[in-house]
């Protein structure tokens, strides 16, 4: 689909043509899913975000400024839908448990604390995912956009509807929490790797 064709499809979708909107869904679904998965870290949640994002986009098509880029506009919707879903999940979790999420530092190791095993990527990945899960929805969203998506602080602010300072501090808080949560893993991994490093 070239630019002129894409603009025509978008114009028809804005006038309520559901077939044109279908073409947009078919074109953007995979990109939307990728972002949703990175934001939520969970396949099922990502699928929910994909559906909700397109429904929200359809409801708001009349407000879409035709000179803007549809992909960028949709990207913002997906990011914000992800935040909303994570907030809703967290609220349900807090209500059910009455306590905050545990941190990766509190999380027991899968096996005996063998430093070499801990250094394995699967274990690190598991711990990192857990640490990311302990971030607030906004921190996680800001961190995902910065770390995985390579967005600048200004872009993060625009995407999430935050000021530059708030976007920056969301990223800072996320990194601070990750440093704290992954500290035990880092220390153990370093201790495990130390003998190997000394042999080099």
């Amino acid at each position: 689909m070239d630019a002129a064709e894409a603009a025509a499809v978008l114009a028809r979708a804005r006038q309520g043509d559901s077939d044109a909107f279908r073409a947009l869904v078919e074109r953007h679904s995979r990109t939307v899913f990728r972002l949703a998965f990175r934001m939520t870290g969970n396949e099922q949640d990502a699928e929910d975000v994909v559906q909700e994002s397109f429904l929200r986009a359809y409801r708001q098509l009349g407000r879409f400024e035709s000179r803007a880029n549809f992909g960028t506009w949709l990207y913002r919707i997906v990011a914000n839908c992800s935040v909303d879903l994570m907030r809703a999940k967290q609220a349900r979790h807090d209500q059910a448990r009455g306590e905050p999420l545990e941190t990766a530092a509190d999380m027991p190791a899968a096996d005996t604390p063998d430093p070499q095993r801990l250094a394995e990527s699967a274990e690190i990945s598991r711990r990192v995912q857990h640490a990311l899960g302990a971030l607030s929805p906004l921190e996680r969203a800001a961190f995902t956009l910065r770390h995985y998506e390579g967005r600048s602080i200004d872009e993060i602010g625009r995407t999430l509807g935050l000021g530059t300072s708030a976007a920056k501090h969301s990223v800072f808080r996320a990194v601070k929490k990750l440093r704290h949560a992954l500290q035990p893993l880092r220390s153990l991994a370093n201790r495990g790797l130390a003998p190997q490093e000394s042999q080099r």
Binding site: R14, S18, R27, Y58, Q60
Partner: peptide, 17 residues
């Protein structure tokens, strides 16, 4: 994309034009 469309097509509301 087609699968996503099949899931949402019956839930599409009236767009706010």
């Amino acid at each position: 994309g087609l699968e996503v469309w099949q899931r949402i097509r019956h839930r599409l509301p009236e767009p706010q034009q």
